[in-house]
Simulated scan of single mutants.
Amino acid sequence: MKFVDEAIIKVLAGDGGNGCISFRREKFIPFGGPDGGDGGGGGSVWLIADEGLNTLIDFRHQRSFKAQRGQNGMGSQMYGKGGDDTVVRVPVGTVITNVDTDETIGDLTVHGQRLLVALGGKGGLGNIHFKSSVNRAPRKSTPGTPGEVRELKLELKLLADVGLLGFPNAGKSTFIRAVSAATPRVADYPFTTLHPNLGVVSLGTDQSFVIADIPGLIEGAADGAGLGIQFLRHLARTSLLLHLVDVAPLDGADVAEQVRAIEHELSKFDAELLDRPRWLVLNKADVLPEEERQAVAEDIVKRLGWTQPWFLVSAIARENTMEVCQKVQRFFVSQRAEHAGRTEMHPGDVRMRGDGESI
Rank of each mutant, 00 (worst) to 15 (best):
L159G: 12
R114Q: 15
L115N: 05
V200A: 04
T145F: 05
G112N: 09
V162Y: 15
S239Y: 14
I229H: 15
T238I: 11
G171D: 02
R150G: 02
N169S: 15
G163I: 05
D188I: 13
G147M: 05
T142I: 09
G220Y: 14
I211E: 01
V200P: 00
L125E: 11
G171W: 08
A182V: 08
L217K: 04
G204S: 09
G224A: 07
V149R: 03
H129R: 10
T145E: 01
L108F: 08
K157D: 01
V201R: 00
S239N: 15
I214E: 02
P190D: 09
V134H: 03
V200D: 04
H111C: 08
T183K: 15
S173K: 11
V200C: 09
A118Q: 07
P143S: 07
S180A: 10
H129I: 02
A222Q: 02
S202F: 02
N169G: 04
I211S: 02
L154H: 01
P168Q: 11
A236T: 12
G147A: 05
V110W: 00
S173T: 08
G204Y: 04
D213Q: 11
T205W: 04
V210K: 06
V134E: 06
L227M: 14
S173R: 06
E148W: 04
L198T: 09
A137R: 03
N197P: 03
S133V: 09
T238G: 10
Q113N: 01
L119N: 01
H243G: 11
V149H: 07
I214S: 01
G171S: 04
K122A: 14
D206N: 13
F209I: 07
V149M: 09
A248F: 13
D213A: 14
R114D: 09
V149T: 09
H234S: 13
N127T: 05
L115T: 02
S133M: 13
A212V: 15
T238V: 15
G147Q: 02
I176K: 10
P138F: 14
K140S: 10
R185V: 15
H234Y: 12
L217M: 07
E155I: 02
R177D: 07
A221P: 06
A178M: 08
V110M: 13
G204W: 05
G120M: 02
L240K: 11
T145D: 01
P249K: 10
S141E: 03
L156F: 14
A221S: 15
I176S: 05
Y189H: 14
A178G: 15
S208V: 00
I176Y: 13
L194D: 05
G147E: 03
H195A: 13
K140A: 09
G216Y: 03
L119P: 00
S180C: 06
V247L: 15
N169Q: 14
D161E: 07
R237E: 08
L244S: 08
L227R: 10
P143F: 07
L108Y: 11
L241Y: 13
P249S: 09
L235C: 10
P184K: 11
V210F: 10
V245F: 13
V245L: 07
A182N: 04
I218P: 07
P138W: 14
K172N: 06
P138S: 10
A187Y: 10
G199V: 08
L198S: 12
L240H: 13
D223T: 05
L198A: 12
K153R: 14
P215R: 09
A160G: 11
F167K: 06
L125T: 00
G226A: 07
S141N: 07
G163N: 02
G144Q: 06
G216W: 06
V186G: 14
